[in-house]
Design a protein around this nucleic acid. Structure first.
Lengths: 173, 173
DNA sequence: CGTGAAACATTAGCGGC
DNA sequence: GCCGCTAATGTTTCACG
């Protein structure tokens, strides 16, 4: 039962917090025509139910020197050690005490350039989203990090030319 | 000159706010060994410089009924009306008064299922990230929305099987 | 950069619909 | 059940040292 029942007010609250996660509870309460206490109760409940996963500040990549965004399709070896694919961190860590081998998933979590990684249907096994400074940095990431991982069979990269839309706000049904 | 100079304290503040965007200024100040006022001044400056773009609440897709995540590669007609591609909203809106034609970019902004869209290098022109309830919803989105857009030539979809990593936190150089 | 004080916000308990 | 009030506590935000 992962889905949580939301009424119209909950959806309004979520829509507001998806746009501005730092609004005071008072401000939110006003906008949804509620007094502060029931509004806060709802917000806390949404947090505890896991509907609201996290509050974050979003940074502008260009302003901090991350001028290049790449999407990388990765294909792994078909018969690689299962640990490479989805081993638990514990298993991978244990494994790693003997060699620098860590599961692909665990490796991905350690690479800060990789901000997203999904196992996908289709020809490629994984899709990575990677923020780097420039092509030199990308090249280093490829040669010294991604392609060095023993489970990686091959990769296909594309680079973002223009951001048309990029929002963290999910549609509320 | 898009890049902004950051010292070690700024980076520390950004790292903290990327993880918890609702921390009180006092709490942040403590963690970076500063008193509240200079800390707040730094945060305000980072906001005004555009380094911090926005504060948001992140929702858990599964919990609100969005059980399916798709990435769609879109190829547009080579010789479509330039308006389809990257027309300004004004131009597109004007155009639209005469017909339901809007630039692809503008259309994308109006489709709430599409949370990200980048123009890309490579064979496909655009990469879309789309959150939907299930395959039935996805099918409706395809048939009734995306494929109806006159500039769309063809599409290739992949579906997320497993989230390995997905963070909004950018690496701080 | 730090201090202090006024304005503002959060949060728990209680009573009412 | 869910709402709104009140009151104590904590936080933000300035002017100023």
């Amino acid at each position: 039962m992962p889905t949580i029942a939301l009424d119209a007010t909950d959806r309004k609250i979520l829509a507001i917090l998806q746009e501005d996660g730092r609004l005071s509870n008072q401000e939110v309460a006003e906008r949804v025509n509620l007094s502060p206490s029931p509004c806060l109760r709802r917000i806390k409940q949404l947090e505890q139910a896991g509907v609201i996963r996290q509050y974050v500040a979003l940074l502008e990549p260009d302003k901090i020197g991350l001028g290049l965004l790449a999407y990388i399709n990765v294909r792994l070896e078909k018969h690689s050690d299962p640990l490479y694919l989805s081993g638990t961190k514990a298993a991978a860590a244990q494994h790693q005490t003997m060699s620098p081998r860590v599961s692909f998933s665990t490796a991905v979590e350690r690479w800060p350039e990789v901000v997203a990684c999904y196992a996908m249907t289709g020809e490629m096994d994984f899709l990575l989203r990677v923020h780097v400074e420039d092509m030199a940095h990308f090249s280093r990431f490829m040669m010294e990090t991604l392609l060095r991982h023993p489970a990686v069979l091959d990769v296909k990269s594309s680079f973002a030319l223009q951001r048309v839309k990029d929002t963290t706000a999910l549609p509320l049904l």
